[in-house]
Design a protein around this nucleic acid. Structure first.
Lengths: 211, 211
DNA sequence: AACCAAATACCCCATTTGCGTTAGCTCATA
DNA sequence: TATGAGCTAACGCAAATGGGGTATTTGGTT
């Protein structure tokens, strides 16, 4: 099946775009595109029986979205790299696509040269992304300047134990204090976090990265 | 202070590399590099009093690491973009740098043209990354093929309510079933998750992304 | 037909939890 | 000096929780 050429598949509902892409790819030495689909369903049905190294996947498709498509196909085609090719640039779409298994994400107005470069790059273990997509991905790591914890050191320590499912008694034993003291601390924690149960406290601790 | 040129600062302990980089940058129209530091401490002391649009930061430095440097400088220089320039390609370094506030991450053997392109890109709101760095970042989202949830649909539904801090009664009301039923479900959830309290269940739900 | 998982519902009972309240001690800051 | 924050400790009480059961119904699998 394979050859020296990179075999590309396209899933895209717009006829013009799909054909243009195929033409560009087939017209470039080193690239081949013999598999084109106008919707996810046919790609899901056919792709597992074909050979492709890279799949260019639109997100907005009639029926199943490209994201769902990747979610279904990627587990079956583990060595295949999926590159989203979309006008959507909202965080939802981006992160869902990546979580679904996409290895690249390009905006649709990417010039042909860039696109071919991206296909090559993803084959070499890269993760091509349009500039602002990459920035959004990076920013999702920037710990969003969390509000400083309202808890004292001791309270944070106790909150950690709460997150582990410890009860008053065992926490007290570990900290060498009275269970009464632990209770008092936990009451104060609840007040500061505006919660009224362990479950909520744990949830808030995780969400706000207090532990 | 600003001009049409992009002002770049360099923090790099290797004299050769530092000077070479500065030469490349200054020798390219549109770029200027007047600020060079051989260690983090001097950059931390001086940069806030200077103007730079982009900082190229080595990671392995004598004294404070480049990552610590970004962690300290980025909050003070919010409009400045930090691009790591490092031989380190371990996950630790990459993710710590990004979390610290870096907007780009290039390996040190990046050719000059690429480097200049990266500087331009980061100024335009991008996040330049070497191919395999980008892939690692993307892969960190690929939800590590989590073991399929052992919980039934109903149980997952109830686990969500537990995570919100709801009690038996309120959950029962929302699901239009008896509190007894909710109790039974929760007991089964505990068995399946090998926990014995709401706090632990919430923790596990979050950790294993069951909700 | 037999079997099982899942969802529903109920019982008892000991333990844990959450809330209100009080209070002593230390340390820092106003 | 005093005022507050943080850590410590205690008492009582009502409500919630967790563990042990049992049981019926439904729907799918063998």
């Amino acid at each position: 099946m394979p050859s020296e050429n990179i075999h590309v598949a396209i899933v895209e509902d717009d006829n013009d775009i799909r054909e243009t892409l195929a033409l560009i790819i087939n017209g470039t030495p080193g690239f081949t595109c013999k598999l084109v689909y106008s919707d996810c369903e046919s790609a899901i049905a056919d792709l597992p029986n074909q050979y492709a190294r890279v799949v260019l996947m639109d997100i907005q498709l009639p029926g199943k979205s490209g994201i769902e498509g990747v979610r279904i196909l990627k587990p079956k085609l583990n060595e295949v790299d999926f590159v989203m090719l979309s006008i959507q640039q909202d965080d939802e779409s981006i992160f869902n696509a990546i979580k679904a298994g996409a290895s690249g994400y390009l905006v649709k107005d990417t010039p042909p040269a860039e696109l071919l470069r991206a296909i090559t790059e993803v084959c070499q273990g890269g993760a091509p992304m349009s500039a602002n997509i990459a920035r959004k991905v990076i920013q999702s790591f920037h710990a969003s300047t969390v509000a400083p914890s309202p808890l004292s050191e001791r309270e944070t320590e106790i909150l950690k134990f709460l997150c582990e499912g410890q009860n008053y008694r065992t926490i007290a034993e570990k900290l060498f204090v009275s269970p009464h003291t632990v209770r008092t601390h936990i009451k104060n924690i609840y007040k500061k976090l505006h919660v009224s149960s362990r479950a909520e406290a744990v949830r808030k601790a995780v969400d706000d990265r207090l532990v």
